[in-house]
Structures are given as structure tokens and as C-alpha cells.
């Protein structure tokens, strides 16, 4: 397996690459008349260079390994965000709240259905009263 620093460098190299790729059409310009691409290219180039150095240093023997990562928690949190976004637009704040509570609770192993149900109902009531009714945020009940 790869070392922690190799993966850390790789991740930021991909970030630099993605942003550079999307901004590749921007005009670079000259130092006295900088184009919109001047800074993005410098920053992306700098990021890519530094990330590569980190990757190379991570190839050294005895570089620390990556500790085990949780997969369930990040996936569930992303799902909770997507569910919140979709349900808020198409159903309403109460459904979105319940979805976030349930999905967030599913990301831990020792969740208890009774507790989850109580928290979901309590939070839905609070959100409905405080944010939709009282503060009148622009969202449907």
C-alpha cells in the first residue's frame, strides 16, 4: 500500500489538475497586464509542484502508513446532504430534517431506533416551528 504522504500529495495533485483543466482556456497575460488566468495558473502550478514533492517524499522507505479510514461516516454524511437538498426543494423542511437525522444516525454502528425516532421527531418539530414558522426562512413545511 502507499504511504500517507504519497496519498496526501496525490489528492492535492488531483485538485490542482481538476482546477487547472477547467481554467485552461483563461488568458495568462503579462506581468504588467495580467489576464484572468495569471494567478490561477501560478497557484495551480505551485500546488502541483509541491504535491509532487510530497508524493516523492512519501515513496521513501518507512514513510508512515495511512491509519484505517471510516468509509460509512463520510458516505452517510454526503447522502444526508443530498437527501436534504433534494427533499427541501421537492417536499419540505420536515422531511429533509428527518432524512438528515436518520442518515446521520445510520453512520454509527450502535444506533438505537427509538432514540433516532425521538430525535427525528423533536428536530422536525423544532425546525418547523423555529425556522419555517417563526423565522420564515423561504422553505416549505
Amino acid at each position: 500500500m502507499f504511504s500517507r504522504d504519497f496519498l496526501a500529495g496525490l489528492m492535492m495533485l488531483l485538485v490542482a489538475g481538476a482546477l487547472f483543466f477547467d481554467g485552461r482556456g483563461l488568458e495568462f497575460g503579462t506581468p504588467e497586464m495580467m489576464g484572468p488566468g495569471f494567478f490561477p495558473f501560478l497557484a495551480a502550478g505551485g500546488l502541483a509542484l509541491l504535491s509532487t514533492i510530497l508524493m516523492v517524499s512519501g515513496l521513501a522507505a518507512g514513510a508512515p502508513r495511512l491509519e484505517p479510514m471510516g468509509v460509512r461516516a463520510p458516505v452517510m454524511v454526503i447522502l444526508a446532504g443530498v437527501a436534504f437538498a433534494v427533499l427541501l426543494d421537492h417536499v419540505g423542511a420536515l422531511a429533509a430534517t428527518v432524512a438528515v437525522v436518520v442518515l446521520c444516525a445510520l453512520s454509527i454502528r450502535d444506533f438505537r431506533w427509538k432514540e433516532v425516532a425521538l430525535v427525528a421527531i423533536g428536530m422536525a418539530a423544532l425546525v418547523g416551528f423555529l425556522f419555517v414558522y417563526f423565522l420564515q426562512l423561504p422553505m416549505a413545511m
Binding site: 446521520c104 428536530m123 425546525v127 426562512l137
Partner: peptide, 17 residues
């Protein structure tokens, strides 16, 4: 496990608002 879902709901509404 009880507090975290509550915090996450507030984060969602905060970011939305």
C-alpha cells in the same frame, strides 16, 4: 450519537440560509 444528528441538521439549515 444523539447530539451529532442535531448538529448536522443545524449545519444544513445554516448553510442553506
Amino acid at each position: 450519537r444523539v447530539l451529532a444528528p442535531m448538529i448536522l441538521v443545524f449545519c444544513c439549515i445554516g448553510a442553506f440560509s
